[in-house]
Amino acid sequence: MRATHVHALYVHGTGRVRALEAHVKVAAMVAFVLAVVATPREAFWAFGIQAVLLIGAAAAARIPAGFLLRRLVVLIPFVLFALFLPLFGGGPRTQVFGFALSVEGLWGAWTILAKATLGVTASIVMAATTEVPDILLGLDRLRVPRLITAIAGFMIRYLDVTLGEMHRMRIAMMSRGYNPRWIWQNRALANSAGALFIRSYERGERVYQAMAARGYQGQMPVLSRELTRPGSWLQALAFPAFAWMAAVAAIIAT
């Protein structure tokens, strides 16, 4: 149970993609996603180029295809929504295998499927090649407010602790025969969630004491001083740059 999912985001390995500094990678990922979103929906070829770039990056980082596919399940609700669109969408209709489908709806479904898949895959590749603490330091270096990165850092640090406590409570409940199936049987679950909140809150107070004991005065110290290696930006930004070229070419063409 310990160290399960936050850890499971990262795929161990070596290579050029992993060696890049986190802030460079995060910036490249965001720039790439924005390029995908800016690409006009009619430009199938541009999405193709972006997909090839992404697959190239994933392959270079040796991320297993199965890992990527498993992580794509977060899209399922939106895939369903996308599948409904051709049926419910407005505007003129076209015959596809005997179905009268909305042209706009088909375009909408395509847009969502293409852009969401590329966007999610880009995030997954970034998260799979960057250790979580490095992502936080990277955000810090990208001038994300320190308050946000600090809170996110505490959150990630204590997620496993909190989940571990939750897990133990659940096991304790189940070993006494608790197996809820209906919403009104949730009282015990909610009570344990309440207890979990109190534990989290009190741990928050103790953590503050531990911080104060080591001289904390309201400012998180700056801990990263490593300089960006020359060439890192160039290497990392080549990736979104091609995506943007495709996007811009597509915008001009349409």
């Binding site: 996110a152 204590y158 909190t162 679950l189 953590v207």
Partner: peptide, 19 residues
């Protein structure tokens, strides 16, 4: 730290499916 702990709590709750 308190906000971080409560964020972890909320995150954990979002993972806890209730029937």
């Amino acid at each position: 730290p308190l906000a971080g702990l409560v964020a972890a709590f909320v995150f954990a709750l979002q993972m806890l499916n209730f029937p």
